[in-house]
């Protein structure tokens, strides 16, 4: 029982080196949500994380767009994995990712011009989001389509949840609203700094503090149960 976290930690640590095709388990999905959360654990994709999380709706829009690109580029790369020569793999991945980003770009414009204006250039910048290229290189190019879909969904939802974690806190404090609905009435004093760029850094820092504290606490519990130090993960 007490060894379970350790096993998982070892598996997670060796995941990027996997060359065997992974069998589909719950872990395929959950890994991206929690142990390998792109924002809170791997600290990837910081540019959209800090830039567009000043409201819940922006965070949600960005997160879902990224998830869409992640899943569909994953599918295509996984399908083509036997035909892409390694010399041109990065070029192929970028073209595939850029295609889906363009689709998202059009779709968001068609759905809401307001959201499109708020997200600005960050939609196009999904192309260079390292989470997506990282997943393509480390996972989709080596795994079957089904596991790729599940893994990309996990990572994408993990990214979306992280953006929402920042977006809701920043919107509540910085504007007194959530999804545009007023929470505290008209007399609420907004903390302007929270919707300005520094607020992104403050809230991200606070969440990282919280998750590190959680991890240390769990580690401490594992150590007291087994008497042996476990991996910090």
């Amino acid at each position: 029982m007490a060894e379970a976290p350790q096993d998982r930690a070892t598996a997670a640590a060796s995941a990027p080196l996997l060359t065997q095709e992974e069998t589909l388990t719950a872990d395929t999905f959950i890994r991206g949500l929690w142990q390998e959360n792109p924002v809170f654990v791997m600290l990837l994709g910081m540019c959209p994380v800090l830039a567009v999380t000043n409201s819940t709706i922006n965070a949600l829009g960005m997160g879902l767009s990224t998830t869409f690109v992640l899943v569909f580029s994953g599918i295509l790369i996984s399908l083509l994995r036997h035909w892409i020569p390694k010399q041109v793999r990065i070029a192929s991945y970028i073209v595939i990712i850029a295609t889906f980003v363009t689709l998202v770009d059009y779709a968001i414009q068609a759905i809401s011009l307001e959201l499109y204006a708020a997200l600005g250039a960050f939609i196009q910048l999904i192309v260079v989001n390292c989470i997506i290229l990282g997943r393509a290189e480390a996972y989709a190019s080596k795994q079957r389509v089904l596991t790729t879909i599940v893994n990309s969904l996990g990572t994408g939802i993990g990214f979306t949840l992280a953006l929402l974690a920042l977006g809701t806190v920043r919107e509540i404090l910085g504007n007194g609203t959530i999804l545009g609905i007023s929470l505290f009435g008209p007399d609420f004093q907004p903390w302007l700094i929270m919707i300005l760029p520094p607020g992104g850094f403050f809230v991200l820092g606070a969440w990282l503090l919280y998750f590190n504290w959680l991890r240390l606490n769990r580690l401490r519990r594992v150590t007291t149960f087994t008497g042996a130090p476990a991996d910090a993960r």
Partner: peptide
């Protein structure tokens, strides 16, 4: 040959998808 073939296929596919999306969304936008 495989390099050319792969890039060619991917670029064609990409072009088709983008044009399709443009056709569908342009009037909506």
């Amino acid at each position: 040959w495989p390099m050319l073939r792969t890039l060619g296929v991917i670029a064609t596919l990409s072009g088709l998808l983008v044009v399709l999306a443009d056709q569908i969304t342009q009037p909506m936008i």
